[in-house]
Write a protein that binds this DNA or RNA. Structure first.
Lengths: 245, 245
DNA sequence: ACCATGCTTTCAACTGGATTGAATTCCGCC
DNA sequence: GGCGGAATTCAATCCAGTTGAAAGCATGGT
């Protein structure tokens, strides 16, 4: 019961069945809670990175700036995500973490990770797999940024978002809440807010999407999948080689 | 002696001191050898991925295509690199591997990785760290692709290349061999071959670089570091938390 | 009800980099 | 030494996306 209320357990159980002991281990990470207002910067690039965070609810994102202010959002975080994982390898945080809306985060020290690595081979394999899978996802984003038009990039982003949201909430059909501003979407896709606006309008006219407030309905998912040659990396994971406990 | 002749051992020893047993374990991965001509495709995206490869000598790269032929090179591989690591998480290869020049690769099965994970905590931590560090590097590339001009992207690429080559060969000062064609560089940076040519010429005129055959000399490394806000992720790794054996 | 604030949309001028095709240089090879 | 194919360079043109500013629209606070 206590374990099923954990976003992290819900998300990771999607990939592999976890022992009761492992569920408890994970749920422990979400013991501490901190809430943050919308638009708050939780930590900055360059800070010493001691903690990781599990997202309990709300959206956040990680970004880097160039010295002249150009901004690149590199990852959008949803409930159940582990924030700051890549930075474990380095001495300092490489990105800044900012909340999109009111958010609840569960901080836990890097050392907890250490403990998992020593005590649960299955969770270790899962963590390594997630790190590697996230590389594949970053490569997909790279492909979008390097070679896709604005409309293709927006389509790719929406498909990726809905795939990720479906992991924890299989009930989602074709409509998602999109709390990010168009400027933030632009900073994620390497475009400008103006052109995001134009692209959304065009996509709505062409019947790909429908917008209502901050809810977005994907009307022609198949067409968008073909347009972007989209692959759902979250559904294609290979857990067959994992050690059993 | 047998261990020091391994590219992989040389590369990984740069990050952490390895026990004799671990050196042997790694050197074993390079037992089998296969050579490939320049421009050869070793495996294709979509193939079942059974093997990983260690690069013994020569350059290669991994790329993905869009259905209409647009191409994105996602990673350039040098001696000592492990090829195909991200795909371990998935059932199928996500990229195609192509050689730049005559290359010698050492294939080894995914299962060898499994063995390392079970038997050497220190190597496991190192592999996880490298996976996470590679995420950070991909994020740096993403930032370049999303927000940098052509000249900044070329500068970033050159700085990244020379940093990586210095890991295994600290003797490198400011000159590198660059066996890739300008079309390949363009496919890596999300530009066109024509514009790469123009950018190189401009950078040479401005005194940033000097070219001679396929050798490239970086004349104003400091200026390029400032231009791109470059961080050497290969030098900044945090191995302090690794388990001892 | 009103203003302040921040987001989206619109407009018009502009430009970095793309495209195309042809010319040139380079280089391995017979 | 000269042939053939690839890589690079050059020049002209074009366009997707930028820039900056202004106008419309929500939302929430007092």
């Amino acid at each position: 019961m206590s374990s099923t209320s954990s976003c992290l357990v819900t998300k990771l159980s999607h990939y592999v069945s976890l022992s009761e002991a492992d569920c408890v281990r994970l749920a422990t990470l979400e013991k501490a809670e901190r809430t943050f207002d919308a638009g708050h910067e939780v930590y900055q690039g360059g800070d010493e990175n001691k903690d990781l965070y599990v997202v309990k609810h709300g959206w956040a994102f990680s970004y880097t700036d160039l010295p002249d202010g150009r901004r690149q959002i590199v990852k959008i975080h949803h409930p159940g995500d582990i924030i700051g994982f890549p930075d474990v390898a380095l001495k300092h945080a490489t990105t800044t973490l900012r909340t999109v809306e009111d958010v609840c985060l569960c901080p836990f020290p890097k050392s907890s990770l250490d403990e998992i690595l020593r005590e649960s081979p299955k969770l270790s394999a899962l963590l390594l797999s997630i790190a590697l899978r996230d590389q594949v996802v970053l490569i997909d984003v790279l492909r979008a940024m390097g070679r896709m038009s604005a409309q293709e990039r927006v389509s790719y982003m929406l498909l990726d978002l809905i795939s990720r949201l479906r992991i924890t909430n299989p009930g989602i059909t074709d409509t998602i809440r999109l709390p990010m501003t168009q400027s933030q979407i632009a900073d994620y896709l390497g475009l400008t807010n103006v052109y995001i606006s134009k692209t959304f309008i065009r996509m709505e006219e062409d019947g790909y999407i429908h917008r209502d407030q901050n809810r977005l309905q994907i009307l022609r998912e198949d067409a968008m999948i073909e347009l972007t040659d989209f692959h759902d990396r979250y559904a294609d994971m290979d857990t067959s080689w994992f050690p059993q406990d």
